[in-house]
Design a protein around this nucleic acid. Structure first.
Lengths: 144, 144
DNA sequence: TATTGTTATACTCTATAACTATA
DNA sequence: TATAGTTATAGAGTATAACAATA
């Protein structure tokens, strides 16, 4: 597709702009509009990586423990997560998704995917292939 | 690279995950750590699209006018933007970047690009080409 | 004594409603 | 009378410091 290698700086700048803009557009699609980004992020972590303690959630989201405590309180009041004391170390509290929490996070991801699926269907076969070929490279860069 | 077309749902899901994660990683790189996302977004709009009125900025960021007013107050106090009454319609106020505001937004973009440039240099030539071929597709999807 | 979670308190960012100046 | 911007006030979300329970 592209033959000559363009200047590195232009390549980085264009990539950054495209990634940030698509991400912002995606974020608009969510199951519960009243839910904050922070709350949704916690549900996503629990969905993807299973039960966490409060401290683990705070570390993952790079947020203070009191702040995460408040977020978890809201989610607990809404019935989306449950707290239960850890058997081995009773200082710890395990936070897990409830059935309703699972439903909310799956619906949000479903909406975001649905928006993307619509967009993918408007692409040509070649454009879709180019996107597909880049996905694993993007994912690996994010882990850096 | 990829020959068979995978299920649309898996394709969308993997793309969403990769885009969101790389975007989050990029956001960490900024010139002034004490500056909020909202403030930086305003500087970015002014840098990219030139002078705006308060209402235009509020509309673009999908935020209320009082909220944008406060954001602009902070930027003005920090000397990053200037207010000047519109000549034609004196109800309006034009908000523009100062020299210092230009420097801050350029430094932030430079940092983000620098991080990306480092990451690009660690890729193979083939990986970089795949990324390059996808950028304009991603940019177009974001505009949808 | 150190660690985990929680409460107390304050600051920032957001919003709606009311106000001022101009069209 | 309508519109652009601002001010007043209140509701989330965040942080640091202090506290309680457990290791």
């Amino acid at each position: 597709m592209t033959d000559a290698t363009p200047p590195l700086s232009a390549e980085a700048s264009q990539l950054r702009s495209a990634i940030v803009r698509l991400s912002r557009r995606l974020r608009n699609e969510r199951a519960v509009d009243s839910m904050s980004d922070g709350q949704l992020a916690v549900l996503g972590i629990l969905k993807m990586h299973g039960t966490h303690t409060l401290g683990e959630l705070a570390d993952r989201e790079r947020v203070s423990a009191p702040s995460m405590n408040r977020t978890v309180n809201c989610l607990e009041q809404d019935g989306l997560v449950s707290r239960s004391p850890d058997e081995a170390d009773r200082r710890k509290v395990n936070i897990a998704l409830t059935a309703e929490g699972i439903a909310v996070v799956e619906e949000t991801l479903r909406r975001r995917d649905a928006w993307l699926e619509d967009a993918l269907l408007e692409l040509s076969g070649d454009e879709r292939r180019r996107l597909r070929d880049a996905v694993d490279v993007i994912a690996r860069m994010a882990e850096r």
